[in-house]
Design a protein around this nucleic acid. Structure first.
Length: 228
DNA sequence: GCGACAG
DNA sequence: ATCTTGTCGC
């Protein structure tokens, strides 16, 4: 009799140990600082899964601050790792990098769907991608991974801090729309909290998600349907 | 031992 | 992330 098994290959505990170590060495590469100048191009990226073992990643390039769409590309490949909290980047980053290579022009900063340093080892997918590409990145997540915070006021623009057990700043919890669940914004690489928050706010257009990730999210869903 | 746990 | 209908609120 068949029995249930989660999507993707099983999580080999030996692999998990090695990836966690690799993540800890990558942490030393992260640099938190303001962008050298106001970005002219900002990118948004996200992934969807047409089938349990196929990943489809999208990169959308927008002019800033107009947010006019300049490019949108995607790439698909076989899933090599199951989803493991804290190790998401090893499952999605490889395919995201392949999609990134398809961009004709490169962005000055990338808004990633997921956390930056608001991660157990300060290496969320935004920081991970930033280090691999050596490009400024920050993360915008819909759910908390780690840290504690006070619920921000219910009005758009309200912000509260996301802190770790020692009071260290991990990110900011931002209400991007009235009475809608807040976003978790944190710097990735070559970016700082103030910049990540400013860019997130500057990219809001009446929706819960800022345009870069909202559009990447949208196209990840559209391209998925096209494949079916 | 008991929760928490991005996408 | 993905599956999946109707439904409550602004």
């Amino acid at each position: 009799m068949a029995y249930y098994r989660p999507p993707g290959p099983p999580a080999d505990p030996l692999i998990v140990r090695d990836l966690t170590r690799l993540q800890e060495t990558m942490r030393a590469q992260v640099r938190l600082l303001p962008l050298p100048r106001v970005p002219a191009l900002i990118a948004g990226c996200d992934s969807s899964f047409p089938t349990p073992d196929t990943i489809l990643s999208v990169f959308v390039l927008l002019r800033f601050p107009s947010l006019e769409v300049v490019e949108k590309v995607y790439h698909t490949s076989a899933v090599e790792l199951p989803y493991i909290p804290g190790l998401l980047s090893f499952r999605e980053a490889p395919n995201l990098l392949l999609a990134y290579e398809k961009l004709q022009q490169k962005p000055d900063v990338i808004m990633v769907d997921g956390h930056g340093i608001a991660h157990p080892r300060r290496m969320g997918i935004a920081a991970h991608l930033g280090v691999l590409l050596d490009v400024p990145t920050f993360g915008v997540a819909k759910q908390k991974l780690t840290g504690t915070y006070q619920e921000p006021a219910l009005t758009k623009g309200s912000i509260s801090l996301l802190l770790d057990k020692n009071g260290e700043l991990l990110g900011e919890v931002i209400r991007s729309k009235d009475k809608i669940n807040p976003l978790f914004v944190s710097p990735g690489h070559r970016c700082d909290q103030a910049t990540a928050t400013q860019l997130t706010l500057a990219c809001l257009r009446g929706y819960k998600l800022p345009e870069p990730t909202r559009l990447a999210d949208h196209w990840a869903e559209e391209f998925k349907k096209e494949l079916k």
